[in-house]
Write a protein that binds this DNA or RNA. Structure first.
Lengths: 334, 334
DNA sequence: TTGAAAGCGATACCAG
DNA sequence: CTGGTATCGCTTTCAA
């Protein structure tokens, strides 16, 4: 409720001085500094966001984002979320510089990040990237604030992570399998690129939960689809031809349509991750029994919001683990 | 990007004039008015929120809220959400006047709303209340903006509704029952007060989905717990004693602990709604197999946010249907 | 009917 | 080291 101006009046100093104390910039005599801090605490001074925003307009901030969205529709709504947040607070003088790439090639990711920093002169980074040493080293060397989105990276000075807990997601799939009846299931697992840390976590969560719950089912094989429909279709067709005991398929990533087509007339229990349009359709057709989503819109939105608050308040953002939203035919949207 | 000041400069008029045109206040000559509107559209004028907030501080707004939270822990996090949003934008001069009541007594609800309006002089209302004619009539007579929270009401001039689609929630329960295996299930349903519209919707959604999917299960009975543990326990004990074919229990509302205790040693498949602490514990104990939550925190948060934006922007808020979040032992939080 | 100016809270910069 | 002042965008009030 109390403002800098009032604080200054009460103490008989200027607003500039109060500002300097509260932000640790410039030199202020120790006695005055102490007085100001004491009074601010006493009267519970809270900076007014509207005021900060208004003056922040003079130094607009550019937020750079890297998303491997090309050819992967999952990221569409994550990007929409980023744009919505940018839009909602464009008043503050924040802008978004979005770079889209295809897949998880470390060379390309690093080059793109360098571009954001050195060419675009971004003031902050939102990254859905690979947990790669070269990239981490580069990020460490720039002094920019970074938020990891969708896929975590081991950057010690990142502000936070916004995205799912993949291990928990795998565990939840196992829980649903248990609910459905796991006994006698022979499961074919289709996974995505190893470069993305989440893809192995999800499978680990799935397996370990099956073991822990002692479910009477077995994994018939784990194969990489490279997020590609044709590859997925071929693999599934081959494996089903080779092994007629397979009665269940777990698709952890992109290539959903291909995988389902590969199954052809085989009556499998199929479940998957995320809800791109393809997946929604397949659920409505009854081909896929459930899918577990991860609030992609919210990931994009909250990542941007957190970075903006970091500039406004200077408060350390907290990591956000998005919900694992189970979708059946009854609650899948059109 | 363009501001009122710039608009005024370009057109060679004063900011006051531009402001008058854009807000339809005061008199402006038709020609100038047209010019201003045209230019504003051309340059895509968007009012700056920080600016508005700053000048809005002079007329603080009081938002009144009615929540039937006494004795019903479900509402705790809804209230937390309301407070968080109020807190986050307290800069804007918004305050929250929260009235908590017990249950759904129409007389008490009406009296409380009248109190908010006439004694507290609130400028807006957030209501989790009964869809009652007397209440609707009263709200219609006050000219205040209203948002229905958690439970919808048939007030024609309400701004919007924030909460779940109860019918869809019931349908999703049926979908999960199907996944688990519905055949041969004899279901005992425990419901809450009829006064709250959602309670009948959820059962309708459940029943109609069972019919539509032609699930081979039957409903053994539907009983009202009045959101009370003791009542719930007694009913369940009695019914199970009378009818030994019951093998499934659907608890749609409060009284969860009582209902589960009433089941005693009977091995039932039990599922429920929402995730108060009791329910979480029962899921962890393996007593309840699943529960479907409705993002209560978000309901409170978004209701307040929407009302604030209504005052700031004047934009009509859109209704928000919260997600139906399925929780199993694998994804229930501690 | 229109213009001019003060004020909201915080920041940055210049002058002392 | 400190004070004073202009500025951000918008609203409101007072004068003309």
């Amino acid at each position: 409720m109390v403002t800098i101006k009032e604080l200054a009046q009460i103490l008989g100093v200027s607003r500039g001085t109060v500002d300097r104390v509260l932000h640790n910039r410039g030199k202020v005599s120790p006695e005055i500094k102490e007085q100001v801090l004491a009074k601010a605490k006493e009267l519970n001074y809270q900076p007014n966001k509207a005021g900060i925003m208004l003056s922040l307009r003079k130094q607009p901030k550019k937020i750079g984002a890297l998303v491997p969205s090309i050819g992967n529709p999952f990221f569409e709504s994550l990007i929409t979320g980023m744009m919505k947040a940018t839009d909602e607070y464009s008043d503050l003088g924040f802008s978004l510089s979005l770079k889209e790439v295809k897949g998880f090639d470390r060379i390309e990711h690093l080059a793109t990040i360098k571009n954001l920093v050195e060419m675009e002169h971004c003031d902050a980074l939102l990254l859905a990237t690979i947990d790669d040493e070269t990239i981490i080293d580069y990020l460490q060397s720039t002094r920019l604030p970074v938020i990891a989105v969708n896929s975590d990276i081991a950057l010690s000075r990142k502000l936070c992570y916004v995205g799912p807990d993949y291990y928990a997601k795998g565990a939840l799939h196992a829980g649903l399998l248990d609910l459905t009846g796991a006994e006698g299931r022979r499961i074919l697992i289709l996974k995505g690129s190893e470069a993305m840390r989440g893809h192995s976590d999800i499978i680990r969560g799935f397996k370990e939960t099956i073991d822990r719950k002692k479910l009477k089912c077995t994994i018939a094989g784990i194969y990489d689809t490279y997020d590609d429909n044709e590859t997925a279709e071929r693999i599934v067709r081959d494996k089903l031809a080779q092994d007629s005991t397979i009665n269940t398929m777990f698709i952890t990533t992109a290539g959903v349509r291909g995988a389902v087509e590969g199954a052809g007339e085989h009556k499998l229990l199929i479940f998957s991750s995320d809800d791109i349009q393809e997946t929604k359709d397949l659920i409505k057709e009854g081909k896929i029994r459930w899918t577990i989503c991860q609030e992609p819109f919210r990931q994009g939105f909250e990542a941007v919001r957190r970075m903006q608050s970091w500039f406004i308040d200077g408060t350390e953002p907290e990591s956000l683990f998005t919900q694992h939203v189970i979708k059946l035919v009854e609650n899948i949207e059109t």
